[in-house]
Design a protein around this nucleic acid. Sequence first.
RNA 1: GCGCUGUUAGCUCAAUUGGAUAGAGCAUCUGACUUCGGAUCAGAAGGUUAGAGGUUCGAGUCCUCUACGGCGCACCA
Length: 565
Amino acid sequence: MSLRAELEKSVTAWAATHFPGLPAEPWVRPCADERHGHFQTHFAMVAAKAQRLNPRDLAERLAKECPPPEGWEKPTVAGGGFVNYRVGPEAVGRAVDALRQDPNLGIPRVPKPESVVVDFSSPNIAKAMHVGHIRSTLLGDSLARLLTRLGHRVNRVNHLGDWGTQFGKLLLAYRAAGRPPLQPDQAIDQLEEFYKKGHQEAESDPAKMDQARAELAALQDGNPERRKDWRLFCESSAEHFRKIYERLGVRFDSIRGESAYHEDLPKVVQDLLQKQIAEVSQGAVVVRNRTIAEEPYLIRKSDGAFLYATTDLAAIQYRTEELKADRIIYVTDARQQLHFRWLFDTARRAGCRAELEHVWFGTVLGPDRKPLKSRDGTPLKLIDLLNEAKERAGVILKSKRPDLPPEGLEAKAELLGMASLKYADQLPNRNLDYVFTWEKLLAFDGNTAPYILNAYVRTRSILRKSGLAKHPCAPVRVAHPSEERLARLLLRFGDAVELAAADRKPHHLCGYLYDLAGQYHRFFEACPVLQLPALRDSRLTLVGLTGDVLKEGLGLLGIPTLEEM
RNA sequence: GCGCUGUUAGCUCAAUUGGAUAGAGCAUCUGACUUCGGAUCAGAAGGUUAGAGGUUCGAGUCCUCUACGGCGCACCA
């Protein structure tokens, strides 16, 4: 249990006894300013307001009747009714001793594990993944890792766009070209060319548009030749996706595209009509809810075709009934908020009992504050982004480590490039658009992956220097202020992980890891580790624990570590 | 028009969900190296949190209005 949680227990018990009416919030928080203390509670001010009492008097009572755990200083009252607590160095040492023996590093387990589907990434078949997919892919992956770590049963689902109307135009051009074989390493580019060609033709020539529609209808009716072509498109795309996911270290439990729900769609619409949730309007089938919008939600077009809303409804049914999901989390960009409001509302009215959540994020912008594009104005391809990250990391590596043999350089550049990209993408609050620059991404200092990795590497190098095979696990004695700060920060890891998961915002964890890396660097400046025999094992233990927490924290963000920079 | 969302230091972003004197990095300036790895550390400077009201013991955070931006609103996904 963290220091905070220990104190929290005591304060909450006191609050529940004397003020049973008040909500059981977390009342204990770390002080923003250490001069006030290590932890504070503002409970007295809240309770005083509710009961019309004097907040200072109540704070005095709380401080007196609610003593901190063993080894803490006597609490003090300050301001308008804050009670401040300070932990003694021995108590810090004891807490760190408990932490180093905890395989979970202070990360709590949820009392009631849920079966959670995380739906993320979801690229379209026959198109290269682009920069618009990166936030969903990384954020979804991190959320899945966080929820798994807290004890939930997580199902990572890639809901591929493999059944849209774009296939009519693509088939049209592909077949007109004589159904040529696709080159393994250029398949995606070839498919994009065919689509572009088919699209242009269909837009300019109504007869071609009719043909494209006919191609789509043939595919959806199960025409064997079209099916075969479509499967080829899917397989070529899958290979493209696989390479990118491998480099990003992202995996899925289930890759199940829209096509998998094709057969279920008529029944979904029929059910909604039968339950009188949906109605026929102007030949289409729609769902209405004036509290959401005046315009209705379309689930079947007037020509009988289904939409992605219908597919999503079918997917909810599958996930709740077949996968037994208690909760489904969708990770998509902000523009789909209205769609998900409609989707969730409709599913609930139709009897869905699972919790449905839309975790949305903003756009990646270029330096001009417009959505990030490549030089020719098309969306920036993800593969180009990854390659450039690696290349730039390689240039920096060579300049920083000219002594490094060329063999190891490439793998190191790849790791640093991916780590930097992943960290930079997850650092800003997901609800905001963010401005992407290479300078920020691969900077050596500031809140970046290299800075944190550097701290980790130094925990490893000091170990190598010590001649030991692994970090010792000795009782920790905090002797220096920067050492004590490091220890207390380590004890907050569990809180940071919990907050990031509960908020569905991994950037909270980035902030914590940056603080920890910085505090480790300060400790490192101030505290000789190997030179002082009396403190050597204690400090090596602290160093080892710092490394473990940095590694575990980065791991929850999907970022691997390395032993040497 | 309706709805969602945003505006914090010159720039890019934080702020533990209503708590104490709003913090970092970059850029600028000043220091610390024959280093337990300097991809580091110490320090200076930089703010009417877009503006105006309101609620509160307390507001960057909640409410109302205004200005400016991004996005979405029936047959794409």
